[in-house]
Design a protein around this nucleic acid. Structure first.
Lengths: 157, 157
DNA sequence: TATCTTGTTCAATATGTACTGAATATTTTG
DNA sequence: CAAAATATTCAGTACATATTGAACAAGATA
């Protein structure tokens, strides 16, 4: 019947989001949680909702929700009257995904500077590779936050 | 002695780059190759240079160089007189790292649109999560390429 | 063609980590 | 406080994939 079809499509949606997040290094189940929390009704789901719906262990939900909380992709919500913890997508979840990468970018700028320092000691070795790397990550470190800021400004609510 | 010290620091440089690349999902050895190719002298290294210097198997070098070639981080170089293949960092390597992520961003914009389509079928379910996601990735898809383009323009050579 | 060098592919192992069930801790209810 | 419900931690398993040695292929040399 039609609703089964829709259900299948939702499952598939969850699976695809999960796959995409796996590509950037997140565990499968973290991606499934994100996927489900994007389309579930209501938007906030209890611990056991997640266990049952995704059909995974409590341990996984416990660990993966912690990870997602930590990286700012979901948030805890207390629902009046309910006693279970509930989770929902953080308002700025997907912005935060990008924002989180800034740390990596910062680290890469730093290491490129370190590399340049290192090569001071042997002057004959080509340094253009490192200079380019350093230039690029300086640029990124300066402009990506600007871009994010711009987005937030345009879409404040 | 002092040169041993420098050598140690170079090793450490390679290791750190490798670690940072691992965080974005690349295999350890791919990161090591990148690290070494950033500071080696000369900038182009033969297949067996890599095998010996990084002390890993031929198979690994073969597979990982293929991967790095594919993602545009290194390039093959023929050196006159030499018969081994040589590799060096691609000019725009680190720009390409970012550029490669655009595919993922594109996929995430698409899946958010798919999600919105899905939820057409049950009107009571909250759609703001998906709308926000979609908005953000539209923004990213529009502005990140611009940013990259701007960088390239400012640093043409 | 025979031989040596260079690089790829294949099958098997090693390694890391995602995931789980069970035990434990924590919180809520009566 | 006892009992029930909920969540975390722990120790072990399962699983994926990175890595390897050895066999194989391809190319150069002579």
């Amino acid at each position: 019947m039609a609703s089964d079809d829709l259900y299948e499509k939702k499952k598939q949606f969850v699976e695809e989001i999960s796959l995409l997040m796996e590509e950037s290094g997140k565990p499968r189940i973290a991606g499934q949680i994100m996927g489900w929390l994007m389309i579930c009704d209501p938007p906030q789901q209890s611990f056991s909702d997640l266990v049952e719906h995704l059909d995974v262990s409590k341990a996984s939900i416990s660990n993966m929700t912690r990870m997602l909380l930590q990286s700012g992709l979901i948030e805890k919500v207390r629902i009046p009257g309910e006693r279970q913890i509930h989770f929902q997508i953080q308002e700025e979840a997907w912005v935060n995904v990008l924002e989180n990468q800034l740390e990596n970018i910062n680290a890469l700028r730093k290491i490129s500077a370190t590399g340049l320092d290192l090569l001071e000691e042997d002057p004959d070795t080509d340094k253009t590779r490192l200079r380019k790397m350093n230039k690029f990550y300086q640029f990124a470190e300066k402009n990506l936050p600007k871009l994010i800021h711009q987005y937030k400004k345009e879409h404040f609510d």
